[in-house]
Design a protein around this nucleic acid. Structure first.
Lengths: 359, 359
DNA sequence: CTGAAAGCGCTTACAG
DNA sequence: CTGAAAGCGCTTACAG
């Protein structure tokens, strides 16, 4: 067992051919004679030869690696994106290089540069970079890029380079679901201003409310996606003059905070006031009452992003056109009042009872 | 904007020096004259030059990348490991290559080979590879490796090459916590047999019970880490002859299933029977009653693994010796009976009231 | 302090 | 069907 790995020259020597021929066999060029091939494969086995990827990358100018740049590495959204990206990457025999930006535009820039020579393309989610800067960066990286939940000036960029959750549709559906149940004073706890998820969800809410009750019927309580903000919003609602009969929080964690505040003030959910969320985090199923919410298939989003990216890398223009964007779906549980408490809240009913409403 | 990126030759040409000198500046060899340096840096800027990592890797035989091989990519454990690994990798300016094995030994082997030439070392978590095979693989990969929560024959391998959660200690502490509260018929819902997490947690439980009540006082209900198994165990307990006054489920999700079954049978938790878990998943805080459990700082585990790995890569023998392994800690909430229901269950008390008991 | 040149381990026209 | 050789873009002794 030598200290250093075998190289293609070792394989050539052992099998008595040139490195060119070894290379052909390794790359599946089927011009090589069967006998030669067998000899070579045997040598490969014997030497435990694995091609050096940097050398191959130099020669081919390809890395068979895609980069994933995320704003941060916390929580379920991140892991689901990665999981989906991995599915597509693995199917195409691509490796995955991971990076994140701490939500900082500077770091995002730096990460993109650092990745540039190590990948054949990248999936970037960088909500904090202003679109112009991002565009420049992408341009000068000269790499195929697919944007994930990230704004991009649409100046001639093919839509296939951007995938995103349809927050507007999800929020609208959910609001309409509340309206359909007879609620008519529906408040919205918003996410942080300037955040595109926030904006989309609020827009969907407003569209549904305005369509049903006319312009001016919206009730917005400012939040920021934190549990504390949801709690505060709950207290404000309890204390406020205009009592909503239902609350749509822009994410689940705020909904949970809100429910907590309502409970503490002696309100029953959903009997006195319905509360729904967005995201379908794992905890949504476990709280009491189980939370009605909107689920987005994040892994699928990641998978599609990766598939499109790889198609671009391969110059395979429309290989990924077959994949529809995943649509948000409503997950009906107890907190909206559509199900009785005993349903939906507990383990066994989980599958049979939860109602999913496809868009 | 040419189609191809600038190379070191371009920089050399523009700044009127040799590529060797450019290389020196790029690598911080401070032998270069200030004026030369400035010229070069300016050219770098102007050309938006970024060194080609494959070329550099060829020349230096280093990739400044570490690989992370995980059994799968689901859930919080995974994302926390990655997050921790990333912290250490980033601090040392290493990139992260991610792979997983679908829990399949064959795939794990393949993944290790595929990674071999792309990384300077790897963190591998491959609980399904039998130790002998893993050892061979690691040996022939000739790469620094740190094992994460993975068995390894201890034949002369320095302990720094393996990091793992101390399940035994965590389970023991938790069981002792129940004992200290006066419970004396404490059952354990085990994880899947053969799983090392399972085994460790069960051992810790047994050690504590045997120490307190003498050998033969343990009560084990077989589980498999699933919510359904916890539910089934709860039903079995309800139906059984020997009623425990407390249940320690080997993970939170089984504890949740168990509580559900108890509730459905009309038992109050913790008044009639206490239930505790292990892992401190996010949902543990949100269920009713909020779950007493054991928290393991997974991200810290990942960080230490990466730090040790990088120290090995750098030949920096004891650089990581300063880092103690993270110890499990008990998170006391409502389900063990130590806190009143109003405490611990709700948002505001989250921080002030939850009792953490350091090991 | 700087440069010319070899070498890292592959792939790929170009010949034969 | 196979081989000799150039080239991918760096780094690093070795000279000077």
């Amino acid at each position: 067992m030598t200290k250093r790995h075998a190289t293609i020259r070792d394989v050539a020597r052992v099998s008595g051919v040139s490195v060119a021929t070894v290379s052909r066999v390794l790359n599946g060029l089927d011009v090589v004679a069967e006998a030669t091939r067998d000899k070579i494969l045997q040598a490969v086995e014997q030497l435990d030869y694995v091609p050096h990827s940097a050398a191959r990358a130099m020669a081919t100018r390809q890395t068979t690696t895609i980069g994933v740049l995320l704003p941060d590495l916390h929580g379920e959204f991140f892991s689901e994106v990665i999981r989906g990206v991995d599915i597509a990457a693995r199917a195409a025999h691509y490796h995955l290089l991971l990076s994140h930006s701490h939500g900082d535009p500077e770091e995002a820039m730096a990460a993109i540069r650092a990745m540039r020579s190590r990948v054949d393309g990248m999936i970037v989610m960088a909500p904090t970079i202003e679109p112009g800067g991002l565009m420049t960066l992408v341009r000068q990286s000269k790499l195929p890029v697919v944007l994930l939940n990230t704004d991009f000036p649409s100046s001639g960029v093919p839509s296939s380079t951007s995938v995103m959750v349809d927050n507007v549709a999800g929020a609208r559906m959910l609001t309409e679901h509340l309206i359909a149940q007879g609620y008519n004073r529906i408040a919205h706890i918003s996410g942080p201003p300037g955040n595109r998820e926030s904006q989309g969800r609020q827009s969907g809410y407003e569209a549904a409310i305005n369509a049903a009750f006319g312009v001016g019927s919206t009730m917005i309580v400012a939040g920021d996606f934190s549990e504390a903000a949801g709690f505060a919003a709950g207290r404000a609602i309890v204390a406020g003059a205009l009592r909503p009969d239902a609350v749509f929080a822009a994410n689940d964690i705020m909904a949970i905070g809100c429910i907590d505040a309502l409970h503490q003030a002696g309100f029953a959910v959903p009997a006195d006031i319905a509360v729904v969320g967005f995201d379908d985090i794992p905890a949504a199923r476990f709280i009491t009452p189980a939370l009605t919410t909107v689920r987005v298939h994040i892994a699928e989003l990641g998978r599609i992003a990766a598939k499109r990216l790889i198609a671009q890398v391969l110059g395979d223009g429309n290989a990924a056109d077959g994949d529809a964007m995943p649509q948000p779906e409503i997950v009906v549980r107890v907190s909206c009042g559509a199900l009785s408490t005993r349903q939906g809240a507990t383990y066994q009913q989980k599958n049979p009872v939860e109602g999913r409403v496809e868009l």
